[in-house]
Amino acid sequence: MQNDVKLIDFLRDRHSTPVAQIKEPGPSQEELEAILTLATRVPDHGKLAPWRLVVYRGDVRKKLGEEFLALLLKKTPDMEDAAKEAELVRFTRAPLVVGVISTAAPHVKIPEWEQVLSAGAVCLNMLMAANAHGYVANWRTEWVAYDDVALQLLGVKPGEKVAGFIHIGSSDFPTPDRPRPELSQIVTYAGESNA
């Protein structure tokens, strides 16, 4: 019973830490593998594993920032300095970033939409698994998830989509909760009058 109360408390207080507030240290290799293992324990109709994970850490994050900036400078050569800096640090804001890549595709029995939802479940599970290991995390996409050239730089194959980039690290930032929807605004009961 006590474990149930802890889980209820965790779910009641769950929130994402702003990426700008995430810092070192990040998970060790052993912790990362445990986080990734837990993250992939999700509903997966047909046992397709319609997703894969790409870990971005170390110097590759800095190199990606330089490539993102070069890509944007071709389109917008007069970028402000702050915007340039934002590109350079896009993947270095946290000690590591995990790309959750949806590999959803037409299937004879499993609707593609269900495969996409499974990738989203991996993203949420990864946030919770990181938290369970004492780390903070944030689920982002941003423009790099939708740009064909950026996707190539990130190792995303044609036909795949980014479900999310999960930034993982540490923080002592007291993240305030944000307003949550009232149940009366989002819940209806089938067959009952909601007047």
Rank of each mutant, 00 (worst) to 15 (best):
N3A: 14
D4L: 15
V5Q: 14
L7K: 13
I8E: 09
L11F: 11
L11S: 09
R12F: 13
R12A: 14
D13H: 13
R14E: 04
S16P: 01
V19G: 00
P27Q: 04
Q29H: 12
L32Q: 01
A39E: 06
T40V: 09
R41D: 10
G46V: 12
A49N: 10
W51D: 02
R52D: 00
L53H: 02
V54P: 01
V55K: 07
R61V: 03
K62I: 06
L64K: 08
A70P: 05
L72M: 15
T76P: 00
D78T: 08
E80G: 05
V89K: 13
F91R: 00
T92A: 06
V98P: 01
G99L: 08
I101D: 10
S102K: 04
T103G: 05
A104Y: 14
A104L: 12
P106I: 07
V108Q: 07
K109F: 03
E114R: 01
Q115F: 07
A130N: 02
N131C: 08
H133Y: 11
V136H: 06
A137V: 03
N138S: 03
W139T: 03
A145P: 07
A145D: 10
Q152T: 09
K161Y: 06
F165W: 08
S170L: 02
D172P: 02
T175A: 14
P176T: 11
D177K: 08
P179L: 12
R180H: 05
R180D: 01
E182R: 15
S184T: 11
N194C: 07
